[in-house]
Design a protein around this nucleic acid. Sequence first.
RNA 1: GCGCCUGUAGCUCAGUUUGGAUAGAGCACCAGAUUGCGGAUCUGGUGGCCAGAGGUUCGAGUCCUCUCAGGCGCGCCA
Length: 590
Amino acid sequence: MRKALAELIHARLAPLVAEFVPNPRDFFELQTTPDPAKGDFALNAAMKLAKPARTRPLDLAQKMVAALAAETAWFTKVEAVPPGFINLFLTDEAITRELGRFAEDAEMGLRRDGRPETVVVDYSSVNIAKQMHVGHLRSTIIGDVLARVLSARGDRVIRQNHLGDWGLPMAMVLWKATPLLRDLEAKGLDPARELSLAQLETLYREATRACEAQPEAAAACHDILVRLQNGDAVLLQDWRTITRLSMREVYRLYEELGVLLTQEDEAGESHYRDSLADTVRQIRESGHLVESRGAQCVFLEHFKAKDGSPLPVIVQKSDGGFNYETFDLAAILYRIHALKASRLIYVTDARQALHFAQVFDVAHVCGWTKDPGRPVTLEHVPFGSVLGEDNKPLKTRSGENVKLADLLAEAVERARAVVEEKNPDLPEETKRQVARMVGIGAIKYADLSQNRNNDYVFSFPRMLALQGNTAPYLQYAHARICSIFRKAGLPADGAFGPPRLGHPAERALALKLQELPTAVAAVAAELRPHTLCNYLYELATQFTSFYDQCPVLTCEDPARKQARFFLCRLTQRVLARGLDLLGIDAPREM
RNA sequence: GCGCCUGUAGCUCAGUUUGGAUAGAGCACCAGAUUGCGGAUCUGGUGGCCAGAGGUUCGAGUCCUCUCAGGCGCGCCA
């Protein structure tokens, strides 16, 4: 609807101002009005254009109103009000006509204009031999939504899980694990069966302590790292065993979380092990490589160290090894050239902002982002930390990172208690499923519904609340609509309508439903999922308000009843689609 | 020291990128609706020097400058 309306307005109004501004379209953005008395949409173009057109805002607004007055199929009224707003009042026919089109589109208006883009979304980035903990939660959840949203818009999305699988931590695990693996082999046992991720993590912790205490342990680990990176066959085999064992448990959690990442999306540090030297060579060829204190560096403008001296980006350490800067730079080259991506998105916490600013800057000054014949944009999507009730980073009583598995289990358990209380008559199996959908949904939604810039305080009671902007509230609205159709004995995917508007609540709902594409487009542009959450919450409240005021099943007038079924059905579809874009299940009953 | 982020109702947060009309929600508090098509609801009310000060503008929560407070980061860990 917005698109059609925007086209009409541009066609009618652009000629009035074309001689004053090169790009009139930019000025005709439809705005929502502060209250219905000011119409359904508003334009502020007259105020912005009055100066270049050398006229008074209100005069220009009146000229624009006159140019739109003949469009009686669209508007019941178009008015100019001081200081120069133009208020547009839509006809019911225009709203229902556009609503019908919206409902017929299987894509629900989500497809973007223009050519699809190849987009890499880098998220989750788990470490091998470490269990997933709260620190992985936000990247995994937010990144997954961005991948879903961009994909729904028609872009070609390539997910990338940049595993931490090739650094010193990995060598430390190998140092402790290798004897264990030999031992198991001697007994003819399968390590993948005998060892758990938790055990690997214990080995890693032991190694960390040992390296801190004894220089010879640290030296041994360093030696293993060098041998691994040089391709030692036995170490490589063990490395593979540990990686698979570790990822097996990660995928269990992804599945429980409803995250799309699979083994195909794995491209960890090890993936770039053979291109690191070449990456440094390419930097050298671009003329930006400088040796400093024995390390190969790039010095960038605008980056200063603590003492004010120029801050280098070290791409090869003085011992000849590579660090994470090099891995990220190699990944950029891979994504641009092998994956043919034109938009690279990195979902990591805000503390890495400086790192990515530097890495991106290196890529830019080396000319990599303009070289491949298409412009490449690099975007860091930072987010704040997950805090406990004490406003400090969330930890267990003993100061450990909270395991993701424990967090999910508690959410499901608490959701189960709510289901038990509110709907004790549901069959056991349904209760179990609903508890999962609600518990996991609550965790994800609590994270997504907040502006990602800010830290947020993790609170089960708040995220599981049945009122307010929470997953359970949206899920309930969805389940309630499904129950309407169950009660009516109608298939939820039946054909209803045509739409017809009689009540203000129907009209408001009809307008709100059509805003889905706007909300999704905003997420794609700004990479902020909470915009979609806000929209869905507003839709759900709009629906319950409608449902309160407009009887559906008991409606006497058959045509009106059909029209209300139409609104219910479409609301259910939009809620389900919206939740799906957020990676959250929409239960049919709960 | 430098840089980034944050500061909006008692609490938790939208709104800030692209300046627009009277700054919005939820919780809490107060008052209503109702034997309810899922009350896990709806309607209304109380509550704001948008951290502070200057500036730009017809118009500033939004843009600019400075100050204050909190968080995070800043040479070979990832």
